[in-house]
Design a binder for these strands. Structure first.
Lengths: 224, 224
DNA sequence: ACATTCTATCTGGCATACCAGTAGATGTGC
DNA sequence: GCACATCTACTGGTATGCCAGATAGAATGT
C-alpha cells in the first residue's frame, strides 16, 4: 500500500471550503487566485481548479477580470436550502419507513444522544447527536446520491449554525420532535412523517433566520 | 451592447454535456483531455475546466493518469435520481399549493397540452408538455436553488428518456395523473399530492428501468 | 473645483512545457 | 509457447507566461 498525497487542488479546495463555512473568510470578500496562490505557495492552476469547484457549489462567484467573491449567506438562501434539505430528508425517512428489513439502531441511538444532551444541557453534544440523526436517516435509505446532495446543501448553512449554537435557547422541542419522527418511521406513517418534517424544519428555519437577521445578513468574522 | 463570446471552457462544457446526454458518447468511453483538445482545436486548459464541471455533476469520472471515463447510466442511478427528483418536485408542488397568491395557469396549460398530445397520439408534443409541467412546478415555487438542482438531476436521465420515447406505450395514464396532481394542488391536499407523486414516479421509474434493462445497462450509441 | 480622459496595474482565460505515475507493448529467458 | 521483467508512450497534475478586458487613480482640460 502506498500513501497517496492528496492533490494540491484538493488541498486548496478543502482549506478554502473550511475557511468559508466556518466564517473565517467573511461574505463579500473579493480575492484573486494569484493572491491565494502566493499565500498557499502553489501555482495558480490548482487554485483555479478548487475555486471552480466552490463556484459550482454556490459558495463563491467568479467574476471574469474582477476577482472571486465569497457569496454571503442571505436569509433567502437559508430558506431555500432548508426547503431542499427538508424534502430530501423526508424522502429518505419515508423510504426507510417502508424498507422490509430496516435497521433503526443508528437513528435510535442519535435520538437517545439528543435526549441525554438536553438533560445535561450540553450544546456541543446536542449538535453531534443532531447531526448523527440526520446523517443516519439520509445515509440509511440506500440512496447515496441523495445523501451526498443533502450533505452538500446542508453544509452551506453551517456558517449560520456555527455561530448560532450558543446564541439560542436549548433545543428542547427539537429533541422531542426527533423522537416523534423515529416513532412515525417505526409505524410507517408517511403522512405523520410529512407533517412532522414540515413543522420541524419550519421552526428550525425560523429560528435560524431570526438569528441571521439579528446579526445581519452575513456571518460575523471569527478570529483567525 | 457588446456581444460576449462564451468562454472556450463554456463551449467545451456544453458540447460534451450534450454529446453525453444524447448518447453520442456512449458510456464507459475513455478519453484523454489532449484528445478533446486536439479535436476542438483548444488547449487543454478549457477542456480540463469543462471536464471537472462534468465530473462534479456525475456525468464523467476523472481517473488520474488513466483518463476520463464517461459514466454509464445504470439502473441503480435511474432509481436514485428519480427518488431525488420526486422528493424535490413534491416539495415544490406542496409549496405552490400553500401559496396565498398562486398562478397555476402554466401548470394548467401543460396539463391541457398533455391531454391534447395523447388525443393526437403525438409523442413529441407529449414530451414537450410533460417537461413544461415539471418545469412549471419546480420553477413556480419561488425556490431557484431547488429548480436548478431538479433540472441538473433530471437531465442525467435524459439519456434514457431520449431513446425510450418511441419504445414505450403512449403514456395515457401519465396524463391522467398530472391532471390529478393539478387538482390536488388546487384544493391544497398535501397528503393526496404525496400519494400521487409517489405513484407517478414509481410507475415512471419502473417503466424506464424495464426499457434500460431490456436494452442493457448503457444507452445504445446513436449515429453521429 | 470639477468632470473627463488616459494609463498603469490588476484580473481571469488560455496556451504551453514539464513532471511523475500508469498501462500496454516489447523484449528476454526458459 | 509462456511467464516475467523492462521499457515506451501516454495520462492527468502542476507551473508559468502571455493576453484582453476592467478598474482605479493620475493627468488633463474646462
Amino acid at each position: 500500500m502506498k500513501l497517496v498525497e492528496p492533490s494540491l487542488s484538493e488541498q486548496t479546495y478543502e482549506t478554502l471550503r473550511e475557511a468559508i463555512l466556518t466564517g473565517r473568510i467573511p461574505g463579500d470578500t473579493l480575492w484573486s487566485d494569484r493572491e491565494i496562490a502566493a499565500r498557499m505557495q502553489f501555482s495558480r492552476t490548482p487554485i483555479r481548479d478548487a475555486v471552480q469547484r466552490l463556484a459550482a457549489e454556490g459558495l463563491v462567484e467568479v467574476i471574469p477580470r474582477r476577482g472571486t467573491r465569497v457569496l454571503p449567506l442571505r436569509t433567502e438562501d437559508v430558506r431555500e436550502i432548508h426547503q431542499i434539505a427538508r424534502a430530501l430528508e423526508l424522502e429518505a425517512a419515508t423510504i426507510i419507513a417502508r424498507l422490509p428489513e430496516r435497521d433503526l439502531s443508528a437513528i435510535e441511538a442519535a435520538v437517545i444522544g439528543m435526549e441525554e444532551a438536553i438533560a445535561r444541557a450540553d450544546r456541543e453534544e446536542w449538535v453531534v447527536a443532531d447531526a448523527a440523526f440526520h446523517h443516519a436517516v439520509v445515509h440509511g435509505c440506500g440512496n447515496g446520491r441523495l445523501a451526498r446532495l443533502y450533505d452538500a446543501q446542508r453544509s452551506l448553512t453551517d456558517r449560520a449554525r456555527y455561530f448560532a449554537l450558543y446564541l439560542r435557547e436549548l433545543p428542547v422541542r427539537s429533541a422531542e420532535e426527533h423522537r416523534e419522527m423515529l416513532n412515525a418511521i417505526k409505524v410507517c406513517d408517511a403522512t405523520r412523517l410529512a407533517t412532522l418534517y414540515r413543522e420541524h424544519w419550519d421552526r428550525t428555519t425560523k429560528e435560524l433566520l431570526e438569528l441571521v437577521e439579528r446579526h445581519g445578513t452575513t456571518v460575523p468574522v471569527k478570529a483567525q
